[in-house]
Simulated scan of single mutants.
Amino acid sequence: MNLELTGKRALITGSSAGLGEATARMLAAEGAAVVIHGRDKDRVEAVAASVRAAGATATTALGDLATDAGAADVARAATADGPIDILVNNAGFYRHLSWVEATPTEWNDTYNVNVVSGVRMIQHLVPAMRERGWGRVVTIGGGLASQPMNTHPQYNATLAARHNLAVSLARDLKGTGVTSNVVSPGAILVDSVKDLVTQIGPARGWGQTWEEIHPNAVDALIPNDQNRFGEPDEIAAAVAYLCSRHAQYVSGATIRVDGGLIRSAF
């Protein structure tokens, strides 16, 4: 299927690793010129160089989206070679804390990074999409928005806010040719997830090796119809579809990519 992304420019926030990197690579493979964003110059440059080595177009934007100045710097760098047609709000912050450990300061910091940072980029980049009559905004959310765990409440709540703001934005963009949607991942096997599960697995009786731990961790944490963790490319594929011409009639939607998650537990 031709997604017709050639000639489009996409900024993927938090794309120096994990889901953001996978998304940037897939959009680039589909013909989009991608802007790799992060705060670590070496990591950002390494991903961009790898994308270019594969024959695609990639530039970089460095900055901390948790500040007004940092977000403005990223917007300037992202639009230096032309307007942004696709904004993927992926950047986020996570700490595994209990209700006791999650202080009000932690709640404020998490909300700023996970919600307000995305708002900053929307306000910088979406007005020009509206003027041109075409654009895509994809927010990376998560199943914890609707099935929160008893732990890391400050993170769960920000996912719900991300889902909510994406739908509100879709309503505001009615009739403009710009869409706003959410991709809601389940538990995806990025490095940090695998490291955490491997670390806690032996103490929970799941086994000693990854081959032993993996199926037991799925049963205990994320029972789903596919009996496994998801892969980053599976999230990237959903994002790519929403960015394509084939998804022009999809707005204000949440696409779950979670293997048919049955429940959340930890």
Rank of each mutant, 00 (worst) to 15 (best):
A78Q: 02
A78I: 02
G141T: 02
F93C: 02
R162F: 03
D85N: 13
Q147C: 00
V115R: 04
L169Y: 02
N156Q: 09
D109A: 15
R132Y: 00
R120C: 09
H152M: 14
N108A: 14
E101V: 10
N150E: 08
V115L: 10
H152T: 15
H163N: 10
A72P: 05
P153M: 11
Y155W: 05
A71Q: 10
P83V: 13
T105C: 07
R136W: 01
L165I: 02
I86Q: 07
A157W: 01
V119P: 00
N156Y: 01
M149I: 10
L125K: 08
P83M: 13
N112V: 05
S146C: 01
T105A: 15
V100F: 13
V119D: 01
T79Y: 08
V116Q: 11
L125D: 06
T151G: 12
G143T: 14
N108Q: 14
L97N: 14
V119C: 05
G82E: 10
A75S: 05
G142D: 07
V116M: 12
N90W: 04
L97M: 11
A161C: 09
Y111E: 03
T110S: 11
P104L: 12
L159W: 02
R76A: 04
V137N: 03
V119M: 04
H124S: 10
R130L: 03
V115F: 05
F93Y: 15
N90Q: 09
T79R: 07
M129W: 00
A91Y: 05
G118E: 01
T151M: 13
H163L: 06
A91C: 11
S98K: 11
E106R: 15
H124R: 13
T105L: 14
P83N: 08
M149P: 03
G142T: 05
H124K: 13
R162K: 08
E131A: 14
G70V: 08
H163E: 12
W107S: 08
H96G: 06
I140R: 01
I140M: 10
G135W: 03
N156F: 01
T105D: 15
A166M: 06
V88C: 09
S146P: 00
R95K: 15
W134H: 10
N156T: 11
G82R: 09
T151R: 10
